[in-house]
């Protein structure tokens, strides 16, 4: 019994220490963002990595999610004779919830794991130490551009996901299930407000911060060779996904 509580205590201590370290890294990254010299090249490189290279996967995910939402929505709403509400159902679900969350989860799988692996490899092969010895702050050089890229690019990706999701929903609802296109578009415009889109984008910016901060942190503190790098990548993905879903609940309860 005593051993159980000791272990529990150690786990709690580790969780508190890690949380503190993550918060410190966030403060450092933000501080260095405003500290000259400003080198934008690295930032644009990360924006391309997080944003442009995730485009294909989010377009694919968004369009099929919109399509399946329309199909499921049609089947459910048909029972009440409310097929005309398929458009708003798809658009609201995408803008408020699925656009930001799916984009976050997809970017975690694609870019978050790659970030943790890259920084983890740099850590275990002393490349991060090499940066430090060249009088370059590793957090400023490696972490700050990644966080900026995440916070700026996730909303861009989320709005693309929203758009292709709505398009996918339109295709299934109008072209395959025969809903009147005027009713579909009209009802969508009636029900979806700018705030729905704005709050969704705010959520995705928060998810961008979570993904890049957690992935950078896990990679930056990797140890123990190839196995340690693998562990860092796994932790980055699992922790980011969990935090996205948990924070989504709290953000939703605050915003809507």
């Amino acid at each position: 019994m005593r051993e159980f509580f000791e272990r529990l205590g150690l786990m709690a201590e580790k969780a508190v220490v890690t949380t503190g370290q993550i918060i410190i890294m966030l403060f450092q990254a933000v501080y260095y963002l405003f500290l000259p010299p400003f080198k934008f090249r690295n930032m644009f490189k990360q924006m391309e990595f997080v944003g442009v290279r995730s485009l294909f996967v989010v377009v694919l995910t968004g369009s099929f999610t919109g399509m399946v939402l329309a199909m499921q929505g049609y089947n459910a709403l048909k029972r009440f004779g409310a097929e005309s509400l398929v458009g708003p159902t798809v658009a609201l679900s995408m803008a408020r919830e699925l656009g930001p969350v799916l984009t976050g989860l997809m970017v975690t799988g694609r870019a978050g794991s790659a970030m943790a692996t890259e920084l983890g490899t740099m850590r275990v092969t002393e490349q991060i130490d090499a940066l430090y010895t060249m009088a370059i702050n590793p957090v400023k050089y490696l972490v700050t551009p990644r966080i900026v890229a995440g916070v700026l690019m996730l909303p861009v990706l989320a709005i693309i996901t929203d758009f292709v999701g709505v398009l996918g929903g339109y295709f299934v609802g109008v072209k395959l299930l025969g809903i009147n296109p005027g009713v579909y578009i009209g009802r969508t415009i009636d029900f979806v407000s700018v705030n729905d889109i704005f709050y969704g984008l705010t959520k995705s910016a928060v998810f961008g911060l979570i993904i890049t901060l957690i992935s950078s942190f896990q990679g930056y503190h990797a140890s123990g060779g190839a196995e340690g790098v693998g562990r860092a990548a796994t932790s980055a993905v699992v922790l980011s996904c969990v935090l996205i879903l948990v924070s989504d609940y709290f953000l939703t309860s605050i915003m809507f």
Binding site: M122, T125, E126, Q127, D129, A130, T133, M134, A135
Partner: peptide, 15 residues
């Protein structure tokens, strides 16, 4: 640090 240079065991080149 600008007065220092360092060669690491595995060279630590940026890959």
């Amino acid at each position: 640090l600008k007065r220092f240079g360092m060669l690491f065991q595995g060279a630590a080149l940026f890959d």
